[in-house]
């Protein structure tokens, strides 16, 4: 799990002004519930999961997702949004162990 916290974000290359488009992402993360036991040692594996994901466009908060261990391993999230001008979509996400990551993508608005 060396790549834990790595994310892949997919957005359209270009969008029209005010057009609603989809933002999809996958985060590499184990999403342990804390209920599962290690089959080798019989000990409980501590809970380890993404707690929230914030989407900022040009530093304005668009959406917050409050997550839980009920979300599958390597979480997939998709939301929709619209933009009036080109800019940067910054996605900030954290887990319950205090790890924090961010990933930015550019969005080009034409017309």
């Amino acid at each position: 799990m060396a790549s834990i916290g790595r994310a892949i974000v997919r957005v359209p290359k270009k969008v029209k002004k005010g057009e609603v488009f989809k933002v999809q992402m996958v985060i590499i993360h184990p999403m342990e519930t804390g209920l599962r036991k290690d089959p080798k040692t019989g000990k409980k594996i501590p809970a380890h999961y993404i707690t929230h994901v914030d989407f900022y466009f040009n530093d304005k908060l668009v959406t917050r997702i409050n997550s839980s261990p009920g979300i599958s391993k390597n979480p997939y999230f998709a939301i929709k949004m619209k933009a009036q001008e080109s800019g940067t979509l910054k996605i900030v996400y954290e887990d319950n162990k205090g790890n924090k990551w961010e990933k930015s993508v550019n969005i080009t608005v034409e017309g």
Binding site: T63, I65, P69, G70, S72, A78
Partner: peptide
């Protein structure tokens, strides 16, 4: 589920419409 809460999403007008997709346990 042992804990029925899965996720919540806070929206803003910048979302354009109500939409959310994910994969759950």
């Amino acid at each position: 589920n042992p804990n029925p809460f899965i996720a919540s999403v806070d929206f803003s007008p910048m979302n354009g419409e109500v939409f959310f997709a994910t994969r759950i346990k």
